[in-house]
């Protein structure tokens, strides 16, 4: 499934009638079965963009289309082919692990035995055996992250939308989860759109890094990451990785500076 974003603009209504422009004329084709990272400074509207793609926010103007390259004339409803993994996970705190993972199937009306079977298979593939009946509050950050991942994977939707899913994890757990995600991606080859503000994470995971500007969010540059797959963390030390990192870093640095100026201006205005 290709995700085609055409001149998407998002303006948040502000005080005194003047809106705040979060996204300015974003146009991009996210290629099918590829891993794309949206990289940009905080407040550049990347989370907004991914929610518009998920059909959970309406853009002020512009369109999002989901197209199967094999059958380009078939219409697809926004949101029906994608599933989101959230920055703050959004696990249901009153549901245990298995009922969190099986939530989507339950909403679809699948009988309990069937949905538990599927959920169990995913629980063992993400290494959560023995924790089926634990509540999210009883788990560590990394384990909760796995529950969120499994809850999305069980939907078997061709597009995965990930909004800084590892941002809240400690450095070691983050590394483990990144390798886990690489393994899953290389097995399933879904279309992944992954929001991050970490350059190394973007280059490690992605086939393509879309660098965004500070607010209003525009696409500054698209960097192709032609590093071989399967990838692992050893990639980080290589020369090719370093070159891509430097190039991306220089692009992002200007934008972070701009965003800092914006933020301090906003603080002074208060």
């Amino acid at each position: 499934m290709d995700v085609i974003v055409e001149s998407v603009t998002q303006i948040w209504p502000g005080q005194h009638g003047a809106g705040v422009m979060a996204l300015d004329q974003i146009t991009h084709r996210f290629p099918s079965r590829r891993f794309t990272c949206l990289l940009g400074p905080s407040g550049c509207g990347k989370s907004t963009l991914i929610q518009i793609i998920a059909g959970l926010e309406d853009a002020s103007s512009g369109t999002v289309k989901i197209v199967d390259p094999a059958a380009p004339n078939l219409g697809h409803r926004i949101g029906a082919d994608s599933v989101m993994v959230w920055q703050n996970l959004n696990l249901f705190p009153w549901r245990n692990v298995i009922d969190n993972i099986a939530f989507g199937l339950e909403m679809r009306g699948e009988p309990k035995a069937a949905r538990y079977n599927r959920a169990r298979a995913l629980i063992s593939s993400v290494g959560l055996q023995g924790f089926e009946y634990h509540l999210p509050g009883q788990l560590s950050g990394g384990m909760r992250q796995r529950v969120a991942l499994a809850r999305a994977l069980i939907m078997e939707r061709p597009i995965m939308l990930m909004d800084e899913p590892f941002a809240a994890l400690d450095a070691q757990t983050k590394i483990v989860m990144q390798e886990e995600l690489l393994r899953i991606f290389e097995k399933t080859h879904k279309t992944v759109i992954f929001v991050t503000h970490a350059i190394d994470e973007a280059i490690l995971l992605a086939d393509q890094v879309v660098v965004m500007t500070a607010r209003p969010g525009q696409i500054k540059e698209v960097i192709d990451v032609d590093l071989p797959r399967p990838r692992s963390l050893e990639l980080v030390g290589t020369k090719a990785f370093g070159e891509l990192f430097d190039r991306t870093f220089h692009l992002i640095r200007e934008e972070v500076m701009k965003s800092l100026v914006q933020q301090s201006a906003a603080l002074e205005a208060r």
């Binding site: 939530f103 909403m107 809850r151």
Partner: peptide, 25 residues
């Protein structure tokens, strides 16, 4: 929690299901 409601919608819950399965709990 709006986030939980959005997550439920993303996972295919209808408005009615969101009320019963997310909002009330």
């Amino acid at each position: 929690d709006r986030g939980l409601m959005k997550a439920a919608r993303d996972l295919g819950a209808s408005d009615h299901q969101i009320q019963i399965k997310v909002v009330i709990p």
